[in-house]
Design a protein around this nucleic acid. Structure first.
Lengths: 137, 137
DNA sequence: CAGTATCCTCCATGATACTG
DNA sequence: CAGTATCATGGAGGATACTG
């Protein structure tokens, strides 16, 4: 995917077209852009998980945020929540077909990230060296 | 790069592996997850743009946020900033090769969004109907 | 175990004014 | 035109306690 020099390469034609607003990117971004959704989806991509399993698998997430995150994913039709009436309670979360399709997008995300993290880190170092106290971070 | 399958298909094997942290997703997410970066990148995907051009192309963005956004993109090596010394000042922003490669990811994002926005909207309606005052949004 | 219910904090964003 | 400098604020997220 070398975009190389001056020449125009094959553009992915990403544009908002005639939309006045912001395409529909915001909708997705508002979901995957938050702090935990993607990490929860990544874990659920491995299979069915219970609440505490999820919390242990996503270090640092609070009970409250995990609840909010899975609720929103459920509301969007990306995750199913299955309650098994027993003591102690058992609730299982699982990706829907749509939630599953999202993992392909997430993979694209991680791939791009892995591919460019070094270049980004270097660019940042150079920039920070050039403008030591710019306030930008 | 068709992201949209239906049903269970071959898994993209998206996992954090043995990483304790959160892969490198957070780095990308922190950039594309913010309110404006993606929209600016989308506009710059069309070609070279000046500051005011960008601001007009991205409705709702404040001068301050546009400055911050392009600065951060520049710092990450995704955008170049070229100052032409003249009166009035002229500054041009352009995607780097890496910034360009990001547009493919953004396209995957918009594609997925376009493909599932209806399903998501419907899932939300149904959920909101089932749990009228849940507080979730 | 799987959550609710509160309270609180900080930071991303916004609004406004000024400048080379 | 292309910014900087301040000040203000809302809401995402965190901490803690309690419950069926």
């Amino acid at each position: 995917m070398s975009v190389g020099h001056t020449g125009v390469t094959t553009e992915p034609v990403v544009s908002c077209g005639d939309e006045h607003e912001d395409c529909g990117i915001r909708e997705v971004l508002d979901r995957i852009g938050d702090k935990w959704s993607v990490l929860v989806v990544v874990e659920l991509a491995q299979g069915v998980r219970r609440f505490r399993q999820l919390q242990r698998a996503v270090p640092g997430i609070s009970q409250r945020m995990l609840t909010l995150t899975v609720r929103r994913l459920e509301r969007d039709g990306l995750v199913t929540r299955t309650v098994h009436p027993m003591v102690p309670p058992q609730v299982e979360y699982e990706l829907t077909a749509m939630g599953h399709s999202l993992t392909y997008l997430v993979k694209a995300l991680t791939d791009w990230s892995a591919e460019h993290r070094d270049a980004i880190a270097q660019a940042r170092q150079e920039w920070d060296a050039a403008y030591p106290d710019s306030g930008i971070r």
